[in-house]
C-alpha cells in the first residue's frame, strides 16, 4: 500500500499547484471571460486531483472522495457557464481582437423585444 500513498502525495502536490495557477489566472487575465477560462479549467483539475489524492492516501475514503470529484466536475463548469452568460447580459463587453462576436445579435434582439 506504500505505492498508493506516494501516488496520493503526487496528486495532492499537483492539485495544489493547479489551484495556485487558477488563482494566478484569475488575477492576471484582462476581462471576465478570460478570467473564467483560466479559473475554471485550472481549479477544476486542481480540486479533482487534490481530493483524489487524499482518497488514495486513505483508501477507506475513496468512495466519498469520488463523489466529491464527480460533483466538482459537474458543478464547476455549470457555474462558470451561468457566470459568463450573466456577465454578458449585464453589459460587460468582452475584449475582442478580431471583431468576431456572434453572440451580440442574439443579445441585441432580446433587448429590442423588451423595449
Amino acid at each position: 500500500m506504500e505505492i498508493l500513498k506516494y501516488i496520493g502525495i503526487g496528486l495532492v502536490l499537483l492539485g495544489s499547484i493547479f489551484l495556485l495557477l487558477g488563482a494566478v489566472g484569475i488575477y492576471r487575465m484582462p476581462d471576465v471571460y478570460n478570467r473564467l477560462q483560466a479559473g475554471t479549467k485550472a481549479t477544476t483539475l486542481g480540486a479533482m486531483s487534490l481530493i483524489l489524492g487524499v482518497g488514495f492516501m486513505e483508501p477507506e475514503w475513496l468512495v466519498k472522495t469520488l463523489i466529491l470529484v464527480i460533483f466538482i466536475g459537474i458543478a464547476n463548469p455549470l457555474s462558470s457557464h451561468v457566470l459568463a452568460r450573466s456577465a454578458y447580459k449585464n453589459n460587460q463587453m468582452p475584449i475582442i481582437k478580431n471583431g468576431i462576436d456572434a453572440y451580440k445579435k442574439i443579445n441585441d434582439s432580446e433587448k429590442s423585444e423588451e423595449n
Binding site: V24, R28, K97
Partner: peptide, 21 residues
C-alpha cells in the same frame, strides 16, 4: 490545464479572444 498554464505564466499573455457560434 497545460494550455492554461502556458498562457497564464508567459509574461505577454498570448490571447486572441472572440465569440463564435
Amino acid at each position: 490545464n497545460f494550455d492554461v498554464a502556458r498562457r497564464v505564466l508567459s509574461p505577454s499573455l498570448p490571447i486572441n479572444p472572440g465569440i463564435v457560434e
